[in-house]
Design a binder for these strands. Structure first.
Lengths: 187, 187
DNA sequence: TTATTTTTTTGATAATTGTCAAAAGAAAGT
DNA sequence: ACTTTCTTTTGACAATTATCAAAAAAATAA
């Protein structure tokens, strides 16, 4: 749990009182490889912090799994659309390595926003940082070739290459597994 | 300005006091076609609300303009990365039709967050909604063909087709203008 | 270890999309 | 109306990437 504290402190230094209130409503989740944290068609009631392990988010398009996200240590995890809109989502979040997470329920978080304004500020700031990252990914996706997208991944996110299988990386980059395999050998 | 009030009320109903404080620090910006609201290499100090008109955001990649965003009535506008990080951005925001905006400076907004917590909540909620939209675009970009992306645009954002030139729409969809022209005739 | 399953690579081919160049069409200015 | 400029379309061709099928390699389980 201290890991979470250190992590959020980098975004915004919340008060001791706020942290204590937050700690009280956190639930530890230990979950093993290949199981699911979130499944499509359900409302996602929790926001998670990934303390240890590795996850992937994917959805199904034309019968194929499209990986749109990977989660690693110190990442926040949820089916964002579903968590915010309180409607069923289309995303699955699968555990790729045995993982430890801390979860908070949507209603508990909203109550904390009322009682501790620095927690609401924290979440606003985290949201903003995540928005920027998403924007960067969209820009890369919009007009770069498969090779450029792969090279950018090698440059910016080498940890992904070490822990994720080729097929899932290919999907994440929006290319076929065969193409990615060929790109790798030709570099 | 009432238009802005109506717009934000749909996200979160702020108190009268908060609205009054916000109103005081808003600046009206009237800006004419083909000029620039934001230019690359500069720090973007303002968040804008677009009351009337139409804008596009683009950046330069390999000497080409890549349009990544269009703004219409009731949209919030800024160079998000720059506004949040307080560093120079890579984006240009160009006026496509004579426009009326309301601007607020970054420092003024942060002061308002301290004095009016419902404004911070409002912004948190707006950010979340914008995040969801961005996520949807990324998903479309990741694994749909050019034709599918175009058809999705026709379905979801027909107003874009009416007000934006073909070349800029093609760029927004991540395809060449010639390809988009061919797709249109073959539908 | 051996067997089984999963992942990655390779080959052949087809489909999609980009690029360059030029023509046609539409819009804006005089 | 007539230029001039900007936008869109069309053609020919090249490059990129996907798809299908099978082989090779690696990981996992028995």
């Amino acid at each position: 749990m201290n890991i979470l504290f250190d992590c959020i402190s980098q975004y915004y230094p919340v008060s001791i009182g706020a942290w204590e209130a937050l700690s009280k409503v956190l639930t530890k989740v230990e979950i093993s490889k290949n199981s699911f944290l979130i499944q499509e068609g359900t409302v996602c009631n929790n926001l998670y912090f990934l303390e240890k392990g590795c996850l992937r988010g994917y959805y199904i398009l034309d019968g194929k799994e499209i990986t749109y996200w990977f989660g690693f240590e110190n990442n926040f995890v949820t089916s964002f659309y579903s968590f915010i809109s309180r409607k069923p989502g289309v995303e699955n979040i699968q555990i790729l390595e045995d993982s430890t997470l801390w979860g908070i329920r949507s209603d508990a978080l909203n109550q904390l926003f009322d009682s501790h304004r620095d927690l609401e500020r924290l979440v606003r700031i985290i949201n903003e940082q995540y928005y920027i990252r998403l924007e960067e990914r969209l820009m890369a996706m919009q007009f770069k070739t498969a090779r450029e997208r792969y090279e950018q991944l090698v440059e910016n996110s080498p940890h992904i290459l070490k822990r994720i299988s080729l097929g899932q990386i290919a999907s994440y980059l929006g290319i076929s597994q065969e193409t990615l395999s060929r790109i790798r050998t030709q570099v």
